[in-house]
């Protein structure tokens, strides 16, 4: 005997069987992810971000269409948070990795002190003077080591698990977003203590730095969501 719920479910599926529904959902998600990943990679380069954004938005549109068609795809907000936090990790890793490991290359020597002179003289004052090279501001190297070797690899792995709707992805996303909070507060405190060095004669000091860096707060914005979403949607 067919119940009302069964009828509703059959209607939702557009008259197709469960296996077909799962397969069509998977294909729709994959099609959207192709655009989302391509867009995120381009946005991760910073300079090509304008090219990457339309691709990313196209991915979001495809995903929304699939959602409206009744397919079982990832919620838009999970997609946004997952890719944004990954982008945050990728952009931070790019800048800090070249400062820590490639500080004597021409590209680093041109880009980092120029950026530093404009926003944060920690990347200009006595640049490359330290025995390890790169930024010379007190404490900066410690944040770079922590970020590159612990926080950001963990963050990118967490994002992959989160986007795959895995339970561990959700759990590690919470860990990495709280770690982001620790890094941000510690970093800002360190900068403030050495503000004389970091902001003297900078083109756009303090306010410029905040305007530049405020867009990296996605991990904190995501935290209330991560703690209130129904975690049953993330599977083991």
């Amino acid at each position: 005997m067919t119940t009302t719920d069964d009828t509703a479910a059959a209607a939702d599926l557009g008259g197709i069987g469960l296996d077909d529904h799962v397969e069509r959902s998977r294909q729709a998600q994959r099609a959207a992810d192709r655009w989302l990943i391509g867009g995120t990679i381009l946005m991760g380069t910073a300079i090509l971000g304008i090219v990457g954004l339309p691709l990313f938005l196209r991915g979001l549109v495809l995903q929304r269409r699939a959602q409206l068609a009744g397919l079982s795809v990832r919620p838009i907000i999970v997609t946004l948070i997952g890719y944004m936090v990954m982008l945050d990790g990728a952009l931070n890793t790019f800048g800090w990795a070249i400062d820590l490991l490639a500080s004597h290359t021409y590209a680093s020597r041109i880009f980092l002190p120029t950026w530093g002179n404009m926003f944060d003289a920690g990347y200009f004052w006595h640049y490359n003077n330290l025995p390890v090279g790169g930024a010379g501001a007190p404490g900066e190297k410690a944040w770079e080591v922590l970020g590159i070797f612990v926080v950001f690899p963990m963050r990118i792995a967490a994002c992959i698990g989160f986007l795959q709707m895995k339970r561990w992805g959700h759990q590690w996303m919470i860990v990495t977003c709280w770690t982001g909070m620790l890094m941000w507060v510690g970093y800002v405190a360190n900068m403030t203590v050495y503000a004389d060095l970091r902001f003297t004669s900078v083109v756009f000091p303090v306010v410029g730095w905040w305007v530049y860096d405020i867009f990296y707060i996605t991990p904190f914005v995501a935290l209330p969501y991560l703690h209130t979403v129904n975690r049953e949607i993330f599977s083991d």
Partner: peptide, 13 residues
């Protein structure tokens, strides 16, 4: 998240 996304991209570019 949308605001931050557009901010990051415009800033990066």
């Amino acid at each position: 998240c949308y605001v931050l996304l557009f901010g990051l991209v415009i800033e990066g570019a």
